[in-house]
């Protein structure tokens, strides 16, 4: 091996190869996103319309049969992708935005602001999440908007802590200190030097937050919080379980299992994407992030 050219080529090739985990995650999440976008084209029926006899087994014109009131289960699943994607993306967007702003400001300014933010993050993280969500949902109601806001309100601290610790190590780097020395204002330094540096971390956190939002939405729906006539995967499972005869016969195989697998697959997709990005950004931090 000659020293001159080979290492350079290796380095260059490495930095442009997308890790397989990221790729797999993108394929899964992208697939569900396409299904959500094209739902009216893909679903053979309106999921709210009573289109056939109730409790039909799969086959013929109903790929996954019909539910207890005669709605097409496959169409329900296709439209369910919309709910999950909307909840995941909007909750993650709100949570990550709040987390980035708070984490950056706290980490960069330090002092009293930082102490207040850090204590709030600690306090929020040590409260058991689901009971807290149930409590808020019980008072605020379980509409889609409320659910998104509740999930976002309880998700930001994980990411805020991450961003804050990243900024703490960035703020004393030479180029940042130089910028400050030349008289750059705080907003300028944050926008020009800090934000670009935390974007990779934030992108990974976004994917992980989106995955967690899918779990939470499904979980809340399973516990009966949410619009009972809505069409999300969690609500489909809830509806199947409240059908009194679900434990008789095989209906659970096409009514419950596909919905559960959809939830699981989308979460795995987001997790692969998030963990892959995390690993790509910082190869040594290959541990599962705090939940």
């Amino acid at each position: 091996m000659t020293a001159a050219s080979v290492p350079v080529r290796v380095v260059r090739r490495r930095s442009f190869r997308v890790p397989s985990r990221v790729l797999a995650g993108l394929v899964i999440v992208g697939g569900f996103a396409l299904v959500a976008l094209a739902a009216p084209l893909l679903a053979p029926y309106d999921p709210r319309e009573l289109v056939a006899a109730p409790m039909l087994p799969p086959g013929g014109s109903h790929l996954l049969g019909t539910n207890d009131v005669g709605q097409d289960i496959f169409s329900e699943l296709v439209y369910g992708a919309r709910v999950s994607m909307v909840v995941a993306l909007s909750a993650a967007t709100i949570a990550v935005t709040v987390a980035t702003v708070l984490g950056m400001v706290a980490g960069y300014l330090g002092g009293a602001v930082d102490r207040v933010v850090a204590r709030t993050i600690d306090a929020m993280l040590s409260i058991p999440r689901l009971p807290f969500m149930l409590l808020i949902a019980a008072y605020a109601g379980g509409g889609l908007l409320q659910i998104v806001l509740i999930i976002a309100a309880l998700s930001w601290p994980v990411t805020a802590r991450l961003v804050r610790s990243e900024v703490l190590s960035l703020r004393n780097r030479l180029h940042v200190r130089a910028a400050r020395g030349f008289g750059a204002s705080t907003p300028y330094v944050l926008g020009r030097h800090i934000l670009p540096a935390v974007v990779p971390v934030v992108a990974a956190a976004f994917a992980l937050q989106a995955g967690r939002a899918v779990v939470m939405e499904a979980g809340l729906a399973f516990l009966g919080i949410g619009d009972p006539t809505g069409k999300s995967w969690g609500l489909t499972i809830r509806a199947a379980l409240s059908y009194p005869l679900i434990y008789f016969g095989n209906a659970w195989l096409w009514w419950i299992v596909p919905a559960g697998l959809c939830i699981g697959a989308l979460i795995v997709g987001f997790t692969l994407l998030g963990q892959g990005l995390e690993h790509w950004v910082n190869p040594r931090a290959d541990v599962p992030s705090a939940t």
Partner: peptide, 22 residues
């Protein structure tokens, strides 16, 4: 285990319930 730990707890429970219980 990546897949299992990503499935919601209620779905894991549901599958066990339906297979081993029902």
């Amino acid at each position: 285990l990546l897949v299992v730990s990503n499935l919601p707890a209620f779905f894991i429970g549901l599958v066990l319930l339906l297979v081993f219980g029902v």
